[in-house]
């Protein structure tokens, strides 16, 4: 089976291991993830803060290219890309004048026929139904599933999971043999783009997240967003200096955790690329 694949910029750069683990997992389940040819940046935070039409035109181009390539469903692992693509689809469906303006500026046909799946939806639909029997090394750890701001918001548009107390990652991890903990910071902000401009704020915000996960006995934090990962993992020094203690709980992408459970190679899952050593 073939599904479309939109990696977005992060998965080609700072979070290559996320791409690697998604692809490795897909391969293990005989799913071909076909990258969209000539894809562009989704616009991220910058575009929609500056120019609304541009912020819609960029994702629309991606969706148009996917249509052109004959793809029905595309997997978008980055939570921010997923949000931009889904919000764009929603806005264009709501406003036909806007839709024509945007498609015209792209010069590409757009019908809105492509479904956009985030990583949780992808796993839910194509991986977990066949997971049983494949789990060779149950991920037998206490995990804190962290959703961040974007994966489940805004609910009116995404219509996915519960926005204040989401459960989808927890359910997936439970199926992989883990014990998800109940904790308070599932959807608190990690500091996002302040990572570069105000690292100390990220230290504080992400520090509360890691601190609470540790206090409740988590052995791993599970994420589904490259931004969250880099703040919780790469900014661990800032976190530790805010907390005044050294916390070495690793942060894994959900695809890495499931990959480990089904016995995939650690290197194939890119575990060596993390800043905080993956000891689990």
């Amino acid at each position: 089976m073939t599904l479309g694949f939109y990696p977005g910029c992060s998965l080609k750069g700072s979070s290559r291991e996320y791409a690697e683990s998604v692809l490795a997992l897909a391969k293990a389940f005989d799913i071909n993830l076909e990258e969209i040819n000539d894809w562009n940046c989704c616009g991220a935070t910058a575009a929609h803060n500056m120019n609304k039409e541009l912020s819609l035109a960029l994702p629309t181009r991606i969706l148009s290219l996917a249509e052109k390539q004959g793809l029905k469903e595309i997997v978008v692992p980055c939570a921010a890309c997923y949000s931009r693509l889904t919000v764009t689809k929603h806005e264009l469906a709501e406003d036909s004048a806007l839709c024509s303006a945007v498609t015209e500026s792209n010069g590409l046909e757009y019908t809105g026929s492509v479904s956009v799946l985030n990583v949780v939806q992808f796993l839910d639909k194509y991986i977990t139904p066949n997971l049983e029997g494949k789990v060779v090394k149950p991920f037998d750890h206490k995990v804190a599933c962290y959703y961040g701001c974007l994966l489940v918001r805004p609910h009116e548009i995404l219509k996915f999971d519960r926005e204040e107390d989401p459960q989808s990652l927890d359910t997936l991890m439970l199926k992989s043999g883990a014990t998800p903990i109940d904790w308070a910071f599932k959807t608190e902000c990690c500091g996002a783009g302040l990572s570069v401009s105000r690292t100390s704020s990220v230290g504080r915000l992400s520090g509360k997240i890691i601190g609470d996960a540790k206090d409740r006995g988590a052995e791993t934090v599970i994420v589904a967003c490259p931004m969250c990962h880099s703040n919780l993992d790469m900014r661990r020094d800032a976190i530790n200096s805010y907390l005044g203690e050294k916390i070495d709980i690793p942060v894994l992408y959900i695809t890495q955790a499931i990959g480990l459970a089904i016995g995939l190679d650690r290197k194939e899952l890119g575990l060596q690329r993390h800043f905080v050593k993956v000891t689990v």
């Binding site: 204040e164 904790w183 308070a184 910071f185 608190e188 609470d212 206090d215």
Partner: peptide, 11 residues
């Protein structure tokens, strides 16, 4: 925005 438990307190 949120109430959670920490060290026997409701934060």
């Amino acid at each position: 925005s949120r109430i959670y438990e920490k060290n026997g307190k409701l934060i």
